[in-house]
Nucleic acid binder design. Structure first.
Lengths: 360, 360
DNA sequence: GCTTGTCCGTAAACTGTTTTACCAGAGGGG
DNA sequence: CCCCTCTGGTAAAACAGTTTACGGACAAGC
């Protein structure tokens, strides 16, 4: 009783072979005659042999496992990202160990250390706050290959995959201008974060490009949460803003904002045109269906995994920084500004979904 | 250049000790004089030594990693569950490797095999479909300790943690009866699943216990999805059902159903009283805020991890089967049935949140 | 003075693979 | 007949820790 689990040695002995032969056969490093193969197969079945994964990892120097550090999988955006990463990793034969940093630097550092101790081959790192430089050293010291996703961490040399935030702002801005809006409000994430700054810059570029007299005012920054969205919306209503259009920088913020708008009886888009950002939440189900900048979340995850695994498997890849294109999905939450009487000088909106392009 | 990473041997040599001494000190198996400790510390810092996790796992026979198989983290219910599991695992010093089965038996089997190959110490398994018996063997053969979560897989001997589905149905049913409803519709998940059957049984038990002449009719089963919810709602409206109340067996189904009801202009609870199940989605934000049976999702995850780790760390635990209590959260989506003119013989609702109890 | 026990420490076995270096024998070409 | 190249296979050395069994030195107890 309590019989030991079968080892490779046992299989080899039972098949009258050396361990090396069996091992190489199992790893397809050798072509054996059918008779020998059958002997091995029989021995394995009989003994119920399963290779010991720890020994395998030690010997090969890798475990075929990736680590993913993400602020919070309860947030649909990160859930979707994690799902994409997991799927792609699995497709390429890698496992994924998940770490929820809850967006605190402490836990981020702790998980980085833990992942080093845990033997993952590489790490995909997603943070969601402005970086204060304290992450730089633990990342470099972890010794693991790493790729930074979604939000930058300055000073770290690694491959990085972002979305084209500026293009997102630009597409939204241009659409609003085209529809005749001249004052655009903006509900953003943390002010210090690149995503916020770049999206804003995109809107401004759209205005500048249009040659039209327009402005982005009522810029309220905070964190990516429904609470912040509610606060923004209340503030916008309270100040009786002159803005006729609004760009909301995330689904989470949008959910909070819509709650307040609905409660206040604000009609969208009759009284206020609204564009969202992310397009993960089922905005098509909302009333009205929401026009939104769609992030290529799945592509983001896939690309990060691809870059990481490539680096891992010897291919000597340079660190790259990529900006994946976003697109504008037109639905029904953007209309003409209320004060505009006729179809004066406003141009028509363009095609239904407008692909952004990769910026260098 | 390309200098080798420091090994324990290097540390020992540099500190003028044997590897055993250093190893035991690092693992707190020995108390050393301060001078020796300092030598070790110096050597480690100088060499930048990090223990090799693979070697460690091999030697100790475990990796302090758990596996979680879940249908889809994109679903908020499972996302929440995964978050709870991850948090608890991390708290106890364990990592978590994530597998998304997408609810297909094939992928479930594949992941089970993969997790065996990947060296996790134990597995938490969540499936979301009626089990056809084909999972039984791969689970047993995996050789890993396993705990089944949320939905049963018959014939598997393992610890299992469920919620008390019947109590959920019962609490909902009793509340509706108390409010005067006599015909209750039910939108459920797959008919073959225990969760569906037990919740339904709970409602029926509530009716039986009340001694009142009531019935649960318009029972529509399908999968846990918004699409199914839309289909259910359309069917209910189309048949001009006599039901004055409705129990919806999941958030996902609810989202679809509400969309149709809203579109049809149905007033809740004036024309139809509604109770939800899960209470993960922010139902408090809905209009009206939804009365719902709340699942103890965090507790579910924590308990599963606890059971698993206990078994792993030698404590000889019997396989247990637990049913965690649910509670009824009263909000504003349940009222009196429309045809009821006065507050006739209906009893008052009870306290605000009613804890269920553990059933044996 | 002898035993006993503690403290600090060592050598060696053990974990279970993969991989390298090598080799006997068979078959083919010259 | 000799040389060469496959084929099918082996022994042994990594991989990098943990753990066991043991042992010398020194102090205390008798």
């Amino acid at each position: 009783m309590a019989q030991k689990v079968a080892r490779l040695t046992d299989v080899a002995r039972s098949a009258n072979l050396s361990v090396a032969t069996v091992s190489r056969h199992l790893n397809n490093h050798i072509q054996l005659p059918e008779a020998t193969v059958a002997r091995i197969r029989r021995a394995i079945d009989e003994l119920g042999y399963h290779p010991n994964p720890h020994a395998r990892s030690l010997s090969r120097g890798r475990s075929e496992t990736l680590g993913l550090v993400v602020p919070d999988i309860t947030n649909p955006y990160f859930a979707r990202l994690a799902a994409a990463v997991e799927r792609e990793a699995a497709r390429r034969g890698y496992g994924l160990t998940l770490c929820a940093s809850l967006n605190t630097q402490d836990r981020e550092r702790e998980y980085l250390a833990r992942l080093s101790r845990t033997g993952v081959d590489g790490i995909i790192f997603v943070s969601n706050h402005a970086d204060d430089g304290s992450l730089r050293e633990p990342i470099q010291v972890s010794g693991r290959r790493i790729v930074i996703l979604d939000e930058d961490i300055a000073g770290v040399t690694a491959s990085k995959v972002f979305i084209d935030n500026q293009q997102g702002g630009f597409l939204a801005g241009r659409h609003l201008i085209d529809m005749g809006h001249r004052r655009i409000a903006f509900f953003g994430g943390p002010e210090a974060m690149r995503s916020t700054q770049e999206r804003l810059a995109g809107v401004r570029r759209a205005i500048a490009d249009s040659g039209v007299e327009a402005v982005v005012g009522d810029i309220y920054c905070g964190d990516y949460s429904p609470e912040h969205g509610r606060a923004c919306a209340e503030r916008l209503l309270a100040t009786r803003s002159a803005a006729t259009a609004l760009l909301v920088s995330s689904d989470q913020i949008m959910i909070g904002a819509l709650e307040i708008f609905r409660r206040a009886g604000l009609r969208i888009p009759a009284q206020l045109s609204v564009i969202g950002f992310d397009d993960i939440a089922p905005f098509i189900l909302f009333d009205p269906p929401l026009t939104s900048i769609r992030q290529p979340v799945d592509a983001l995850g896939r690309r990060a995994v691809d870059l990481l695994i490539r680096g891992l498997e010897g291919e000597p890849v340079e660190d790259v920084v990529e900006h994946l294109p976003v697109e504008l999905v037109l639905r029904e939450s953007v209309g003409r500004p209320p004060q505009e009487s006729g179809p004066a000088k406003a141009r028509k909106p363009r095609r239904t979904t407008t692909k952004g392009s990769i910026t260098p």
